[in-house]
Design a protein around this nucleic acid. Structure first.
Length: 425
DNA sequence: TCTGGGGTCCTAGGACCC
DNA sequence: TCTGGGGTCCTAGGACCC
C-alpha cells in the first residue's frame, strides 16, 4: 500500500487567530508584527498581494500601510498558542497518527484510510473552519518532503481548493508539476544551498529529484541526500508523535529602547532567566548550565559594536530560579562593559536532563533540594492561578523601562478571565 | 525614532588518549 | 630533511526550520 502522509498547515496563522476574535478584520489587509512591533511575521492574503514580504521591518512599511489601510496587530502569543492547541487536539482525533510539527503545522498519517484522501482532507478543512474558524490547506504525498510541497501547491493554486494529493497524480504529471517549482521551495533547501544548487544548474524541484544522491552527499551533506530520496517518494523522515523535551531553552528579547546601564540589564536578565526556568520546570527538567549574551544594535553600523556571551556551569543541574538567576547575574557582571547602548539580551539553558535522572551523590544536600523543589512548585502554582509574574524575584523589578513596545495588542480572549470576549444581548 | 524569537541537526577541527 | 595512526569527545559555527 502506498504511504499517505498529509501536511495540514494553517493559512497565515497569526492573522487568522486575530480574525477569529475580530471579524471586522476579515477581507482587510492585516499583518501581525513581531516583538517590539519590529517586523512582519504574518500577512493576510491581501497584504501578500501588495507584494509585501515576510520579515520586513514595520517602520519601512508606514507609507504603503497608510495608502492601503493595512491593519497591524502586535503579536499575542498566548492567544496563538491556545488556538494552536485546539487545532492540534482536533486533528489528533481525525487521524490514527499525528506529529505536531510547529505552532501552525501538523503531519497526519492517512495510510489505510479508505475514504479517498482528497475528500477526507476536505472534511478536515471544513471541520477546523467550522469549529475553530481557522482556514487550513492540506498537502498529501508519500513522504514528508513531498507532502510539504503538495501543501505549497494547494496554497498557491486556487483550483486546488485548499487540498493537493500528489499520490493521486501520475508520475509524469507530477514531474511536470515539479518542473515548474523552484528548488528553493523544497523543505530543507535554504538560501545558501539553493544559490549553490542554481550555480550547479539545478534550478527546479525536478532537477533535484533526478540528481545523483552521492554527488549531493559529497558536495552538501547527508541531509540534502535524504531530501532527494524523499523527493523520489521514499519516506526517510518518520512521523514522531511525542514531542521530545527541549535540549536547550531560550528566552531572549530586544528592548523597547537601548539600555546603557548595568542595573537595567540586570533586571532584564533576571526576567529572562526566570521565564526560561519556568519553561524548564514545565517540562520537568533541570539544567547544568546557563548561557548569557548581550548585544548592541547591529543595524547601527556606525556605532561601536559589542556582543559578548558567557557560559556558566552550575555545580549541579538545577531548576531553581534563584540559582540560575544568580549564575546569570554573575556572568552578566563579567561581560558587561559601560559605554555601549545594548539592544538585546538573551539567556539559554543548556545541558538539560530530566529531573528524574538527576545524578545522585553522597554529598547531595537532600533537604536543600527538597526545599527548593517545594518553593518552586509553590511559585509556579501561584503564578498559574494569579497570572504570570504575580510572584517573582525582587531583582526583576517593577518599572521596566526596557520593556518591549506593543502598540496594538489584542486581548487574550481565551486564556485570561479578565480579557474574555463578552457578547452583550 | 523604528530591524523578532526559539529551536534542531550536521560538520569540521582541536584536544586527548593509546 | 624526515615526526604514526586511529579513535573518541567536545565545541563552535553554519545551515535550516517556523
Amino acid at each position: 500500500m502506498q504511504r499517505a502522509i498529509a501536511l495540514v498547515d494553517c493559512n497565515n496563522f497569526y492573522v487568522s487567530c486575530e480574525r477569529v476574535f475580530q471579524p471586522k478584520l476579515e477581507g482587510k489587509p492585516v499583518v501581525v508584527l513581531s516583538n517590539n512591533d519590529g517586523c512582519v511575521v504574518s500577512r493576510s492574503q491581501e497584504v501578500r498581494d501588495l507584494g509585501i514580504k515576510m520579515a520586513v521591518p514595520w517602520f519601512q512599511l508606514k507609507d504603503i500601510a497608510k495608502r492601503h489601510g493595512i491593519i497591524a496587530c502586535s503579536s499575542n502569543y498566548g492567544l496563538y498558542a491556545d488556538l494552536s492547541n485546539r487545532v492540534m487536539s482536533l486533528l489528533s482525533r481525525l487521524a490514527p497518527w499525528q506529529e505536531v510539527y510547529s505552532i501552525d503545522e501538523s503531519f497526519l498519517e492517512l495510510t489505510g484510510i479508505s475514504t479517498p484522501h482528497a475528500e477526507y482532507a476536505q472534511r478536515i478543512r471544513a471541520k477546523i473552519k467550522q469549529d475553530l474558524g481557522i482556514p487550513v490547506c492540506i498537502g498529501i504525498a508519500s513522504s514528508k518532503t513531498l507532502a510539504k510541497l503538495a501543501n505549497h501547491v494547494a496554497k498557491k493554486n486556487a483550483r486546488c481548493n485548499g487540498v493537493c494529493d500528489f499520490n493521486a497524480m501520475t508520475e509524469q504529471n507530477l514531474d511536470t508539476l515539479l518542473e515548474s517549482i523552484e528548488v528553493a521551495e523544497v523543505w530543507g533547501v535554504g538560501r545558501r544551498s539553493s544559490a549553490r544548487l542554481q550555480a550547479m544548474g539545478i534550478a527546479t524541484v525536478l532537477d533535484l529529484k533526478r540528481c545523483s544522491p552521492e554527488r549531493i552527499r559529497d558536495e552538501f551533506s547527508v541531509v540534502l541526500q535524504r531530501t532527494i530520496a524523499e523527493l523520489n517518494g521514499m519516506s526517510c523522515i518518520e512521523l514522531d508523535n511525542v514531542t521530545p523535551d527541549k535540549q536547550q531553552i531560550i528566552c531572549s528579547r530586544s528592548f523597547g529602547s537601548l539600555i546603557t546601564n548595568l542595573p537595567d540589564l540586570e533586571q532584564a536578565v533576571i526576567a529572562y532567566a526566570t521565564r526560561a526556568t519556568e519553561k524548564l520546570r514545565r517540562q520537568k527538567s533541570i539544567a547544568g548550565g546557563i548561557q548569557l549574551y548581550i548585544r548592541t544594535n547591529p543595524h547601527l553600523g556606525k556605532e561601536p559594536q559589542y556582543q559578548p556571551s558567557i557560559l556558566m556551569h552550575m555545580d549541579e543541574p538545577t531548576d531553581d530560579t534563584r540559582l540560575l538567576c544568580r549564575a546569570a547575574l554573575h556572568g552578566l557582571r563579567q561581560i558587561y562593559r559601560s559605554g555601549y547602548g545594548y539592544q538585546k539580551a538573551g539567556v539559554m539553558l543548556v545541558e538539560i536532563i530530566p529531573r528524574a535522572s538527576r545524578p545522585r551523590s553522597l554529598f547531595d544536600d537532600v533537604e536543600a533540594i527538597q526545599k527548593s523543589h517545594a518553593l518552586m512548585t509553590t511559585l509556579d502554582a501561584i503564578n498559574r492561578r494569579m497570572g504570570s509574574g504575580a510572584l517573582k524575584l525582587l531583582g526583576e523589578g517593577t518599572h521596566k523601562s526596557w520593556a518591549a513596545r506593543r502598540g496594538n495588542v489584542s486581548r487574550r480572549y481565551t486564556t485570561e478571565w479578565a480579557e474574555l470576549l463578552v457578547v452583550s444581548a
